[in-house]
Design a protein around this nucleic acid. Structure first.
Lengths: 187, 187
DNA sequence: TACATTTCTTTACCTATGTTAAGAAGATTG
DNA sequence: CAATCTTCTTAACATAGGTAAAGAAATGTA
């Protein structure tokens, strides 16, 4: 899947989609590469064609996973992108990736030519808002075990694509705690 | 402060602001009143002129506070509003409140007449996204005590306007745990 | 294939927070 | 003002999850 198919699904007209597609630059990343590094301003929006990304935050030898991005979805360090301030997160490839990206300048040009796109941006912002909200609710209302079960039900491919210590971090627990939880479940 | 002052600050032209203001209906609520009840669709956006609201979720005799709303800010059960599905949350007045509200129908009419307003909506969605994100980060990276200290620094008026057991819930802990934390701090 | 590195699991011990229950303090109502 | 209800604190005990360290398993590399 490429970005055109995605945009057509969102019922944008074909000519607009072609213009948008043209502004997106194709790229590859190896596992471990950083698309965005902590401390820099994220001035791009990415669309992931293949592979898996993690938005992470490193401190005191610990790693905090803010979110995962799977293929056929958009990615950006939105706080940095929206506020044009330097990002507290890195966007890191955790497998071999293929992606497309567009700069904020090109995106704003497109807004002028295709105002419908602003709707798309609004929808994307809404969609990531709904995601963060759901996750926050899980953190407050569920136990770590419940969150883990919910996660693998909701994103079954996660286990095969992402190392457990990153999943643990995403759940807000240590790898040791996750290991314990997994043992309890299988027994 | 009323909604006009707020909108003028966001540099919307005066005539647009007046039209918007006209579509907002003024209302009052007593402490304990529900503006929106769990299970209904939230089809309004509120602007709080006075008082304090809590977005809550009740289950098994427990109460989960999703967010507080203070005066001079907008409120809505956004997931319900955005997706037009029934809300899992209630919006409850926790003090004497005065507010203004606009229905989604009227809001969409305004979009047609004043497309700039869509920008405002985007900005609001972005702003609540930034809030939820910040809170989720706190939940993952900080201890309950750190979250409490951060909260009272960031929202110093909270302690005087909101009962502690609601603050505890917002922090993701019990009232008992918060009481312990407060004792440790003052000693 | 052998060695090195990364990821995962296990153990032992520690701490923060949950649960339940009781009482104190404060607020509300007849 | 007394009675009632709500909120806050404290105590005692239970449990989930953290920390550190070690080894096992898996993966990557010379």
């Amino acid at each position: 899947m490429n970005i055109s198919e995605y945009l057509l699904k969102m019922s944008l007209p074909k000519d607009v989609v072609e213009e948008i597609e043209g502004k997106f630059v194709r790229n590859k990343a190896n596992s471990g590469d950083y698309l965005i590094s902590e401390g820099t301003v994220c001035d791009k929006i990415y669309f992931l064609n293949k592979g898996c990304l993690a938005m992470i935050y490193e401190r005191d030898n610990k790693i905090f996973v803010k979110d995962f991005v799977f293929k056929n979805d958009f990615a950006s360090v939105y706080e940095s992108f929206l506020t044009k301030t330097s990002s507290r997160y890195s966007l890191k490839a955790i497998s071999e990736c293929e992606y497309q990206s567009i700069s904020i300048t090109n995106l704003e040009d497109l807004y002028k030519k295709a105002p419908q796109l602003k709707n798309l941006t609004l929808k994307l912002t809404e969609s990531i808002y709904l995601n963060v909200t759901k996750r926050m609710e899980s953190l407050i209302t569920l136990s770590a075990e419940q969150r883990y079960l919910e996660l693998i039900e909701y994103r079954p491919n996660l286990l095969s694509e992402v190392p457990l210590y990153l999943i643990a971090s995403y759940l807000g627990i240590t790898d040791v705690a996750l290991s314990r939880i997994r043992r309890n479940i299988t027994s």
